[in-house]
Design a protein around this nucleic acid. Structure first.
Lengths: 352, 352
DNA sequence: TTTGGCACTCTACTTCAAAGACTGCTAATC
DNA sequence: GATTAGCAGTCTTTGAAGTAGAGTGCCAAA
């Protein structure tokens, strides 16, 4: 096997131009076209030699002998990681996103709007994972007795988001007792993380049980049930504009779409996928098979986490064909995440 | 123009067999096949004469000269209205639906389950329109002051369904005042229609304003805001299993699906369409273009209203290709609507 | 190292022919 | 008058064969 040449400046430039052109045209790029486009004053024959090397290295591939080349996943990866020059965003787009996000009442509406905006701005699909209830701030709690020993718990969390839950009370409580329990919790815990509140409750009760009044023990017992994340339906991933994806029909057959939509509707898979993006800061990209989900094979996911108080709580982004205009999409997703974070922070009102 | 023969017994029978076979095979039916299938001991030539008449009358049509015939919308219509023999439901299916519906906590879960069941049982898409909040019973109301003069309204309606709404209070109320208002409303109106409650409030206040205490006037004012359907987001139509529809790909091209999904996601269109089915009792069917929605052109909608206390409050059904197995689908939708109604009635608990 | 030239490969498109599935019509038959 | 056999004619589907076009790989020359 001959020694492979290193990926020099020229080869990188040619790869860049090839990927750009493929993204733009959607057709395999041949040596003649690339020679014309690259602006290097090289003959197609020379270009062919370089292309051959790039293919050997696994960055491009040809669908058949007499076709041009198109990027492989590694090719896209290299392109995105070190060749891409992002485009500044259009002012009008920025203004529109900022305005639309600014006019939303609840954080639920806000995130739904974000998903819609992402989809409209890109003509692809927008995705937004909602923050875990766990990580938002405890703001106010209220108990309402229903029939048959059940209690309606109304929990207001940091972003004025309202959660309802019905729990089975361990015993019958009077309205007064419930009021007292709610008061205790509201005074004691307002503003703290919901997860922290629960942990504190568990610890305190077990440590100092003997010294607590029956009243407090009751309050803690109800609160533990009320805040138990067990059986809590995790908020879904909001996907908007999936239908747009059907416009990218270089494919004439239904199967890819069927399997794409199947994956998108698999809430758990999507949640798990989005959660993988929450750890690293900045824009994250899964190209094609990188996501590990079969249905996403020919698609890319561009995401960024959004934060409340500098803590990443959720992820948003865009799904589209691998050959999307990354140089426009990346800054768009980045900006949207920042604006959503800003809007959420603004909405995080002090406790009642 | 020659006089058209009347649609005699034999022609009807042949139409019936033709439609059945077309639904089963998905291919235009020719005279030879029909002669074999019909069991009438007639030659293909005779059958051809009858088919020619049926075509003249608009019940069947041929995609091209040398193909068999397939039903037109009128053909399906006649078939469904007077030729169809429905099949009794499989016991196991009945049991499964009954069990699954029986295990749901809230009416929201119940209806979602219904949509899912319909889709799974038919391998098509299930649709369920949620009852208007308007028409359900007022059960319990509670007010919670938020910051900046806003009030959180918690309304529990007849089926233990919980509605949250934030309103802007006309002035600042104390916790006591709010409690009094809630008490008044709960004592006075529990069990009544929400619509009726609102109407009563409006009437009484305007009629007897002078004689009312300030307290009651306040209560009425808040309640009117709280129960105002204005700006209320109408509950969406629950569609499950749309992806199943992609399996019916006698079509190799994406466009029909694109336009179908677009229509399905057009919430307002769907709500309006479903509402048209709420008036008549029993199973209602829209075949192809009958629905008047372009995206549904090659699809049928089989629906039935479900009732609480003998009043139709919502509609559920199935969307699938025009050539679906109506004799199985119709009783299934019928049964599901009845079971959903029964489950809802069972859930409609007395006021707290 | 670069390039022109050339043989070769593979796809996409067109044309043509043949097979198959039906129909409509006509004339004979029941 | 209703039914039927027979037959010519129509239209789709399938496959084969041929052609044009795009692009490659390699070699020898610059």
């Amino acid at each position: 096997m001959p020694k492979l040449p290193p990926l020099n400046e020229r080869a990188q430039h040619l790869l860049k131009v090839l990927v750009e052109r493929y993204i733009h045209e959607g057709q395999p790029v041949g040596s003649r076209a690339l020679a014309r486009e690259a602006g290097l004053n090289l003959s197609p024959a020379t270009i062919r030699n370089v292309m051959s090397d790039l293919e050997e290295l696994g960055f491009i591939t040809a669908p058949h002998t007499s076709a041009g080349r198109m990027p492989t996943v590694s090719g896209y990866r290299l392109f995105i990681d070190s060749l891409l020059t992002v485009k500044p965003l259009n002012d009008q787009v920025i203004r529109q996103i900022r305005d639309d996000l600014g006019h939303q009442e609840s954080s639920g509406d806000l995130l739904e709007t974000a998903s819609r905006l992402l989809s409209e701005a890109t003509h692809m699909a927008g995705v937004v994972s909602l923050p875990k209830r766990e990580s938002s701030a405890f703001n106010h709690i209220e108990f309402l007795p229903l029939s048959e020993g059940r209690l309606l718990v109304i929990l207001i969390s940091g972003q004025q988001e309202i959660h309802n839950k019905i729990i089975l009370a361990p015993r019958d409580y009077s309205a007064l007792e419930l009021q007292a329990a709610a008061n205790f919790l509201n005074n004691r815990f307002a503003g703290k993380d919901i997860r922290r509140v629960r942990e504190t409750l568990v610890r305190e009760v077990s440590e100092t049980r003997e010294r607590l009044s029956q009243e407090l023990i009751d309050a803690a017992a109800i609160a533990q049930l009320a805040l138990d994340p067990q059986g809590e339906r995790r908020d879904p991933v909001l996907i908007r504009g999936e239908i747009n994806l059907m416009d990218f029909s270089e494919i004439d057959n239904l199967e890819p779409f069927r399997s794409l939509f199947e994956t998108l509707h698999q809430q758990e898979d999507m949640i798990q996928l989005m959660d993988r993006c929450i750890e690293s800061p900045g824009v994250q990209i899964f190209i094609g098979e990188e996501s590990g989900h079969k249905g996403l094979d020919h698609w890319s996911l561009v995401t960024s986490a959004y934060s409340i108080n500098d803590q990443a709580v959720g992820v948003l982004g865009v799904i589209g064909p691998t050959r999307m205009a990354y140089e426009r999409i990346i800054p768009l997703v980045d900006l949207t995440a920042k604006l959503v974070g800003a809007a959420l922070n603004h909405k995080t009102l002090p406790p009642l």
